[in-house]
Design a protein around this nucleic acid. Structure first.
Lengths: 353, 353
DNA sequence: AAAAATGATGAATGCGTATGCAAACATGCA
DNA sequence: TGCATGTTTGCATACGCATTCATCATTTTT
């Protein structure tokens, strides 16, 4: 009973249904001009043969692959990115796009991997935790493939970008530290060539400098262990800091662990720590991390909408969007009077959750 | 200077190079019969036009998409899976296959999503943390698309599967608990319909039953919070357990946090906890989790090799492989005398690391 | 030197679908 | 009934590449 024929084609279905191949194609094309009666004949024949349209052939014919290329880094080192990947791929999925995934290392050169995406004529490209050489940006522009950067500021006007306001985030951290009476400040950087780390550092530093203060800078390599080690170095300094801002949560957690378990410091009594992202772990009772929350849902909605819009209207210009983050107050940093754990402070408002 | 032509074709390159389209195709096909001199002409013309072979057209022609479909769940709730995804996609990448990704929820029905993969004529399918209906298994078999399950035992002889030896893992946990003098045992399950959780429970329970012991079972829903709540329920029991084995590490960490921060229990003095997976966090000083390590690299190598082999030799039969896990001794569980933190115990040997 | 083997090349065809176009058909209206 | 309008349908072709086959050029063998 089960037909042993592998991968029936529209022509075979057509023959069985007694119609033309065009009719079969139309039966599977929403909105095509076809009588309900013939559609039913076709669908029946298709089912009998186990027919399923060949998306590869369709792509060739329509010049639309319905595939989005996603490039992502740090998937194992920072829980923020699995979160991003999950949300992105669900969104695209839901909106009828498939996802071709490339997992890269932070420092891997995209110039080798973007061509692999372009080979498959992806309809659009989304880069997360990865940057784009301007040569590649031009190449994509030339080919008419829209590119969106997520969580990286744009190096080139050819691409869209969706970021949290990192500079303002850094400022918020600095202000909270200063308001609650800290004296020595430090920033644990992710790397020296990543916009997220650089901008968060810059906001933090500039806000301190307004008050004549200067933070220590240590390199945490965007990893738990790197930040763990950075914290130990900081604590060896003659005037060790009592306020440490980290370029992301996973490093903040590394710092916390180092302070508590290797340096026997009380957090936040002796040292305060603030992170960035608000990953789920930040809310765990072992950490209770005060942090700047990236409004990931909103950022992703915007990024997906923008990319799909640019795919469908090729005249549309790329867009750069900066979304404000919220300061989530927990208990890894000393609080100024009047504030208690559980508050969320956004740039424009303060609301309890 | 820069040609404004979008997506040059092999025919255009052929014209510019003064050769036939076949020659262009051969120039980009490793091992094809073509003179070095004409290849150079072609490559030069191709560069001038910014030509890149169209993988979609190639797929249609060769009936090989060079795409692997990966379906994965739990990407945000269990750090083990980002690890798996990272390793898998790198491996495939490196071996010339692209990855089409589908992120699903644990209970999502794959019968809706596998057809989407099949539409693109993927060369093979790899499922992680997801199970396959036997209808779908047959469908894939009929179409000649090899399927591999990772970390799920096989429901159907049509698919390969690569798993850690969960039953033996459960046994090891039970033996360690018993050897170090625990009295009341509990298992925090992930779900009641997942082979990993069921098998780990079964090994644990059977080993205890050999000694006339019976564990409590609580449901942890494969999540930190679910396990956190499960631990609180366990501690409310009249004879609360002093030995808790969890179906995975992220739940073990939830249990640890509940014990320490909500129940004021000392770990391991009052309660011992063992997990499963050995995710990176298990080694963090805040947790120091004793756990069963899944030899993820080895499992992934086997899975990738098997899938690629079956793609290339369609006569090859699917394979079921069980890889032994190692018990990694840290300090979340009391130790029997003679054992100290830092030891790794495998089924056949005990070696220090 | 001729014969045979080897290598390089282009013309033609097929992969499976979508779609423009013209023909066929159905429907409404006068 | 006749005509204009709108809907369905099939034919033919295009999408971009790989590959077979026959042809021709080149090298090796005898």
């Amino acid at each position: 009973m089960a037909e042993r024929k592998v991968n029936a084609t529209s022509t075979q279905v057509a023959k069985l249904a007694g119609v033309s191949q065009s009719a079969v194609s139309r039966a599977f094309t929403p909105g095509a001009s076809i009588a309900e009666s013939t559609r039913r004949k076709v669908v029946q024949a298709a089912r009998k043969l186990g027919y399923q349209p060949n998306a590869i052939a369709r792509s060739l014919s329509t010049k639309r692959s319905k595939i989005i290329g996603i490039v992502i880094a740090n998937v194992t080192t920072n829980p923020f990115y699995p979160e991003v990947l999950d949300a992105l791929s669900r969104q695209f999925q839901q909106r009828g796009q498939r996802v071709m995934l490339f997992v890269v290392t932070r420092d891997q050169n995209l110039d080798d991997i973007l061509p692999q995406l372009l080979e498959y004529r992806v309809d659009g490209i989304l880069l997360t935790a990865a940057t784009l050489s301007s040569a590649m940006a031009h190449e994509c522009a030339r080919l008419g493939v829209p590119v969106t950067l997520f969580n990286r500021s744009v190096p080139d006007a050819h691409a869209s970008s969706f970021c949290c306001d990192n500079i303002e985030g850094g400022r918020m951290a600095a202000r909270l530290f200063m308001k609650s009476g800290h004296h020595q400040f430090a920033f644990v950087a992710g790397s020296h060539d990543t916009s997220t780390s650089l901008e968060r550092e810059r906001g933090f530093r500039e806000e301190l400098q307004k008050h004549g203060l200067e933070p220590y800078i240590e390199m945490g390599k965007f990893s738990y262990q790197g930040a763990f080690d950075a914290a130990r170095r900081l604590m060896k300094l003659p005037k060790s800091p009592d306020a440490v801002f980290c370029a992301n949560d996973i490093m903040a957690i590394g710092v916390l662990d180092a302070l508590r378990h290797a340096e026997q410091k009380k957090v936040p009594e002796e040292v305060s720590v603030i992170g960035f992202d608000d990953i789920p772990m930040a809310d765990w009772p072992s950490y209770n991390l005060t942090t700047i929350r990236q409004p990931i849902e909103r950022m992703i909605d915007s990024a997906v909408n923008d990319l799909l819009d640019r795919i469908n209207h090729d005249t549309m210009a790329p867009k750069q969007e900066l979304v404000a983050g919220d300061l989530v107050v927990r208990s890894s940093a000393r609080l100024p009077s009047g504030l208690s754990s559980g508050w969320v402070i956004s740039t424009s408002e303060t609301r309890n959750v």
